[in-house]
């Protein structure tokens, strides 16, 4: 009935890991795009833009990702009857929604840490808001964004494990399946943990390389971290 945990069990786990990487890559890119837009809106002089983005960010960051995943996966099909969402697509949507809010806060923090004098000098030269943002503020803010951005990617990889509830066979779900085949949850999930570790630690090493190269170091107390997820 149960067979022992075997080398052949690595294959579905590796497949799951690959799906996790794909999931995070797509959600990450989309999350960054929307996150930058939200972050810029959050710091813009337009009251409406600030209000809408703040409400979105506060709501998304105030409820668990799991609830968001449930909402997208179970709730949205009810709102739009007949709409069939592919598991991967709904996972991407859910993760992107959450990622955008997370990235928005990083972007906001980076923009706000560009010295005010830069903005004033740009305005004194006659640059309007969009020119100022594009040529003065964002180029400086982007460098500061990378270290917490690395933290965001690592958080995304860990958050993707929650997508398991939708049945999408990413790494954690693959672990569940293998557990059911081998009856050895501990060995299986240790291997799963090691795979996550390799991905996450690898990303953090890249981040440290960037910090060494550019000398940019962010005050870790100012980072919007995800706890343990």
């Amino acid at each position: 009935m149960f067979r022992a945990f075997d080398w052949q069990d690595l294959i579905p786990l590796l497949k799951g890991a690959w799906l996790t990487i794909q999931l995070c890559a797509v959600s990450g890119v989309l999350g960054i795009i929307f996150g930058v837009i939200l972050g810029v809106a959050r710091t813009s002089p337009s009251k409406i833009a600030r209000w809408i983005s703040t409400i979105y960010i506060t709501c998304v960051r105030g409820i668990p990702i799991l609830v968001i995943i449930f909402f997208i996966f179970f709730g949205v099909p009810l709102l739009f009857p007949g709409l069939e969402l592919d598991k991967f697509v709904s996972a991407v949507i859910a993760l992107t929604c959450f990622a955008a809010a997370y990235v928005a806060e990083i972007v906001r923090g980076s923009i706000e840490s560009v010295p005010k004098g830069q903005s004033e000098a740009a305005e004194a030269l006659g640059l309007n808001y969009w020119l100022k943002l594009r040529y003065v503020i964002l180029p400086q803010a982007t460098k500061i964004m990378v270290p917490p951005g690395v933290g965001f990617i690592i958080g995304l990889v860990k958050d993707s494990s929650l997508v398991t509830v939708t049945g999408l066979i990413e790494l954690t779900h693959a672990g569940n399946i293998v557990t059911n085949l081998t009856g050895d949850p501990i060995k299986t999930f240790l291997v799963v943990a090691v795979m996550y570790f390799v991905i996450c630690y690898g990303v953090s090493l890249l981040g440290r390389l960037y910090e060494k190269r550019t000398g940019i170091h962010v005050d870790p107390l100012k980072l919007p971290e995800t706890a343990g997820v």
Partner: peptide, 19 residues
């Protein structure tokens, strides 16, 4: 610290639950 921070909480919970 590195082990905990680079693995998902869910996997940690599974391991503890089954251990």
């Amino acid at each position: 610290i590195e082990a905990i921070r680079n693995t998902p909480l869910l996997v940690q919970l599974y391991l503890i639950y089954f251990a």
